[in-house]
Design a protein around this nucleic acid. Structure first.
Length: 421
RNA sequence: GCAGCCAUAGCUCAGUUGGUUAGAGCGCCUGGUUGUGGACCAGGAGGUCCUUAGUUCAAAUCUAAGUGGCUGUACCA
């Protein structure tokens, strides 16, 4: 390939039509579902004070090595970072504005992590998500999970699995962590070198290891579910019962640990069976009952999820669903008299809400008809010397052989409007 | 982070043991009809063979480094 002077930075890409239209449609579908469920959109800044994201957990890769951070020009300079996820921003917003709970918001937008890119993983990636702040009712958990589930279904995806777990809360997790740490330490000799390091920082995440050497030890490790207090167990059981009630299938996944430290109690992940194992997580979320307080707000429980749009669209490809939307151009104006009539006609059609397009540069009729066909337009509106002389336009059906007929310029918009119904 | 594979036209890819002017299909443009798209036919445009350095009389082809993409792994969405 001829090397262009500049290219999109590593791990980023341009999304061009028609793929961009498909993403827009997916975003619109998500927005509609979220609004139907009573969520309003939050538009937060793309960068925040680095401290906002440090609360995600000092031991997570996201915080320790994957942040795009920089200093601004202030005196003293402020240490800022591009957002690596949005839950922290939402909680910061809640702590800042103190809206009346329960506060239900949805979001969409690009997020940034400095990682090694590969298929389905980008340095700038796009997520949609929701957060419900201010309620620890298990029915809030169920509503959130159901919204995610329904969104995948609305795109046409069928092969999505829901993995469910409870990570406990401060009343029971310390005891479990202690038991887990003791167990893993006792069996340290059998663990991989990498896991021995992870064990020091965060024993929970050793459970996430997929290294073969660790498999045996991990499989026999104590499980959080066996340490839940009555209260957290009741919460978890209520979530399961609610999902049963809604007919949403799930798989209990007692070793499901998520990459961010703030999660408590309910945690879940959506997996696309149509994608290869390394990038098949298409969404995930859970409760983070301590995060708002960590960010300086009042003690506030919260639950939410984030879904990775890039991977969702890959899953749509794999399942061959959710095609790009039909072209908006309905009428292609072919003007062989120089183009100024096309200018007027297109403007009138567009004003009436009818998609209209044309070519430039005074091309031949043959060339213009070719472009008209390719545009996906349903009709060609042809303007030549004859039409100009009689104040008419020739309307030609491009998608069937019903031929063509003339209408007066004044009638064009209403004729087309009738034909499109 | 670690490891492997790959990089030739807008796209998908051929290119022999290193040897004239680097090819195909699709796409694009023009014409075949001085007013008509899709099918067909003819012609045309389009290339720093990723970059740099090296080996050689000679490099798309061999070597090294860099860059980018992909795959696995780690981790994550």
């Amino acid at each position: 390939m001829a090397a262009p002077t500049f290219r999109a930075p590593k791990g980023t890409r341009d999304i061009l039509p028609p793929e961009s239209g498909r993403r827009r449609a997916a975003l619109d579908a998500f927005a509609e579902q979220a609004e139907l469920a009573g969520f309003g959109e939050i538009m937060s800044p793309i960068f925040e004070d680095l401290g906002v994201f440090k609360r995600l957990g000092e031991s997570t890769d996201v915080v320790t090595k994957e942040m795009f951070d920089f200093f601004d020009k202030g005196d003293p300079p402020q240490h800022l970072a591009l957002r690596p996820e949005l839950t922290a921003s939402v909680c910061r917003g809640f702590a800042e504005h103190r809206p009346t709970p329960p506060w239900k918001v949805w979001y969409e937008g690009p997020q940034f992590r400095y990682e090694q890119p590969q298929a389905g993983r980008y340095r700038q990636f796009h997520q949609v998500g929701v957060e419900t702040l201010g309620s620890d009712d298990p029915q809030a958990d169920i509503d959130v999970i159901a919204l995610g589930w329904n969104f995948y279904a609305s795109l046409g995806l069928r092969r999505i699995s829901l993995l469910l777990n409870s990570l406990g809360d401060p009343s029971c997790r310390p005891a479990y962590l202690e038991a887990l740490r003791r167990y893993l330490s006792d069996n340290q000799a059998s663990l991989s070198a990498q896991s021995r390091v992870t064990l020091e920082r965060n024993p929970l995440r050793v459970l996430d290891s997929k290294r073969r050497e660790d498999a045996e030890i991990v499989a026999a490790a104590p499980l959080m579910v066996d340490f839940l207090t009555d209260e957290t167990r009741d919460h978890f059981d209520a979530v399961c019962a609610g999902l049963d009630q809604l007919g949403i299938p799930y798989e209990l996944s007692p070793r499901l640990v998520r990459g961010l430290d703030y999660y408590t109690r309910t945690t879940f992940e959506f997996v696309a069976e149509a994608l290869s194992t390394a990038q098949n997580a298409v969404g995930g979320g859970g409760r983070y009952d301590g995060l708002v307080e960590d960010l300086g707000g009042p003690p506030t429980p919260g639950i939410g999820f984030a879904l990775g749009l890039d991977r969702i669209l890959l899953a749509c490809d794999a399942e061959d669903v959710f095609a790009p939307p039909a072209p908006v151009t309905k009428v292609f104006v072919v003007d062989v008299t120089g183009g100024s009539h096309a200018l007027v006609v297109c403007n009138a059609l567009r004003a009436a809400g009818i998609g209209a397009d044309r070519t430039y540069d005074g091309r031949s009729m043959k060339a213009q008809m070719k472009v008209a066909d390719r545009s996906g337009a349903l009709f060609a509106a042809i303007i030549g010397e004859d039409e100009v002389a009689s104040g008419e336009v020739t309307l030609r059906d491009l998608r069937s052989d019903t031929g063509q007929h003339r209408v007066t310029l004044d009638d064009l918009v209403s004729s087309v409007g009738r034909l499109l119904r």
